[in-house]
Design a binder for these strands. Structure first.
Lengths: 98, 98
DNA sequence: CCAACAGGTTGGCATTGCAAACTAGTAGGT
DNA sequence: ACCTACTAGTTTGCAATGCCAACCTGTTGG
């Protein structure tokens, strides 16, 4: 197996999936965000967004905190250190592969 | 929806899938290949490889020709012009997004 | 009381990937 | 000639995942 191609085979699928790649890209840039902002920026429906966030959380890539903005519930998301590192590595691998 | 993120949402899923991304990358580089070479370079099993090649063929990205090497059957693959173009565009979009 | 909002859960359908079975033709041994 | 094994793929069964649409929960405002 060719070196370049091996990099592709080893890409982190949790991040590679476009839905989550959007989320990681956004969260990497902004350093903290809420559910509605992510929904608006990605164009995903709530169900899909919710399940991608759950997956990122169980991968340890994001931290989810449920709070209130006044009386309205608000879900806050931010990358963990592991998530930041995984995203940087993903980008590095992809760049090397292409 | 943010411009960078929109690029990700619009990535060509036919190419983005790692199995097929490996194939496109290989075929883009070598300009003509056979089934066994691709299997060896990608590490995929025959079934998976066969189905990805079918999908790439029906997307019009590769051309499949079945011939013989002496008496042994051989399946030859190569990118079409459309496939080459799609791959270049995919890479461009990805680069812009990251 | 009722519509609307934030967010989550569920059901249905398509796709991926593996493994195992299958096809078709070829080569080797007896 | 006959049986077996191998090569090159294709097809099928199965589990996991992705995405959408629809429904559910809890709360707020009119």
């Amino acid at each position: 197996m060719n070196r370049q191609v091996r990099k592709i085979a080893e890409l982190d699928r949790t991040i590679h999936e476009p839905g989550r790649l959007m989320l990681m890209t956004l969260l990497f840039a902004v350093e903290g965000s809420d559910f509605l902002y992510l929904q608006h920026e990605t164009g995903m429906n709530k169900g899909t967004l919710s399940s991608h966030l759950s997956r990122l959380e169980s991968a340890g890539y994001i931290e989810v905190s449920k709070t209130y903005r006044g009386k309205v519930p608000q879900t806050l998301l931010r990358l963990t250190a592991a998530g930041r590192k995984a995203f940087e590595q993903y980008r590095r691998h992809l760049r090397e592969a292409l």
